[in-house]
Design a protein around this nucleic acid. Structure first.
Length: 235
DNA sequence: AACCAGGACGTGA
DNA sequence: TCACGTCATGGT
């Protein structure tokens, strides 16, 4: 029988431990021109500490769309060493330069436009200004930007802007489907509501839970048949 | 050598 | 609303 979402969190958390939060370039922890490829800082929730780190999370959220993290991180390294790893850099770079820099992340033509769109938005409306908006309003603002869909918006909200907005990804759907918690046709928003209705609104729980689902998903839900040998399924 | 990776958009029904 | 084609690199 299916566990509830809170129980599943406890089980995953106990099984895997702290995941930390999001890959980012931490000056102290990684050499100039590189992004911390482990990226995680288990148990340390003091990030992001400034606008630059928030921006890096936003950039990463776009670059990683339907792509593995290694490719996205390589793209961030190149952005950094090219001088484009900033609002100014993103805005001043030509589309060709930007596309070349992020080539490894795939879909580089679209993602170039997405990055420039987002950079323009963040220039008009700074992180400081964004703080005054309610989370639902902020989410709607993000969703209006081309290239930021529901999942990317929630990643930005949760990890960069530190709002309690649950992230639903492909692994989340697969896992919940196999748990019998959702039906195959459940859409993004309904799954998101499910989590937000059953969890206390604690930022670290939201952050950790998504990370845990990704880790668990990579382990058991990457290749078919999905869920084979998933210990969550065994009583 | 197909298949997938922490998706989003545009289109047509 | 919703299913489907498209976008693209790099690893297995």
């Amino acid at each position: 029988m299916s566990e509830n979402l809170h129980d599943i969190y406890q089980i995953l958390s106990k099984a895997y431990g702290h995941q930390g939060w999001w890959p980012i370039k931490i000056t102290a922890a990684c050499p100039p021109g590189t992004v911390n490829s482990q990226g995680y800082h288990p148990g340390d929730y003091s990030y992001p500490q400034d606008d630059q780190q928030k921006l890096e999370i936003c950039i990463g959220a776009i670059l990683v769309q339907n792509t593995n993290w290694k490719n996205a991180i390589k793209a961030m390294d190149t952005l950094d060493s090219s001088g484009f790893f900033s609002l100014k850099g993103l805005l001043e770079a030509s589309e060709l330069e930007l596309a070349l820099a992020i080539k490894s992340a795939g879909y580089y033509n679209q993602k170039t436009r997405y990055l420039k769109n987002m950079a323009q938005f963040l220039q008009n409306c700074s992180f400081k200004k964004l703080e005054q908006f309610s989370t639902p309003m902020l989410r709607n603002l993000l969703l209006k930007l081309k290239g930021i869909g529901a999942e990317t918006a929630d990643k930005i909200l949760l990890y960069a802007l530190e709002r309690c907005s649950f992230v639903v990804d492909a692994y989340t759907k697969r896992i919940l489907l196999h748990q019998g918690i959702i039906s195959p046709q459940a859409n993004y928003e309904s799954i998101k509501k499910l989590f937000q209705a059953s969890l206390a609104k604690e930022i670290t729980v939201f952050q950790e839970y998504h990370a845990l689902l990704v880790l668990h998903g990579k382990k058991y839900y990457s290749k078919k048949p999905y869920g084979s040998s998933d210990f969550l399924l065994k009583p």
